[in-house]
Design a protein around this nucleic acid. Sequence first.
DNA 1: TCATTAAAGTTAT
DNA 2: ATAACTTTAATGA
Length: 198
Amino acid sequence: MVIKEEILHSVGAITRHYQPSEVIFNEGDIPKYYYQIVHGEAKLNNYTDDGKEVIQTLLEDGQSIGESLLFLDKLYPVNAVAITKCSVLRLPKAIFLDLIKLYPEISFNMNKTLSQRLYFKLIMAQNLSSQNPAAKLKVLMDYLKSFQKEQSPYSFMIPLTRQQMASLTGLCVETAIRTIKVMEKKKIVKIKDRKILY
DNA sequence: TCATTAAAGTTAT
DNA sequence: ATAACTTTAATGA
């Protein structure tokens, strides 16, 4: 969690509720608020000209949404959309920036968050250019698994749908599915009632 | 080789 | 029930 919820409340953050697929902000909107997910799952996405979804980031409890734009004078380059029902704390940008100046711990956490996002982007950037589908999926899974304590084979259930994995790696779902099956044959993953174990 | 299209089965809401 | 997700197969770049 980037900022303690009590602090956010105490400086006037309000809780907003979103239904699945409800928009939190749109590409092109002016960034005016800091958002932090209390509970739920959301994503940052774009659409290619032919309508295919590209997922930039998946976000869950405790994570902030689109925070990098609060330090810039730019419009949002992505949409933020709730995946599940979400409750989100929302704080005006100016107050957020004051918090950053006031509390070293919050500032540090924000640096950490931004570094985290940058790291993910670097890893995924390498991935999107070149590479075969199996390598792309493996890089994604390695990244996800890197947060787990348990590192033994097949101990990690990938918390994504094949659809989401495809949208994160720029593959079409069918290719993702076929590739995952090949990876199962090669003992890279196991599949237990449709769930991917890595 | 991978994307696309279509069609159908499965799961979640 | 309906929508979202998964799977298979055929076809084309």
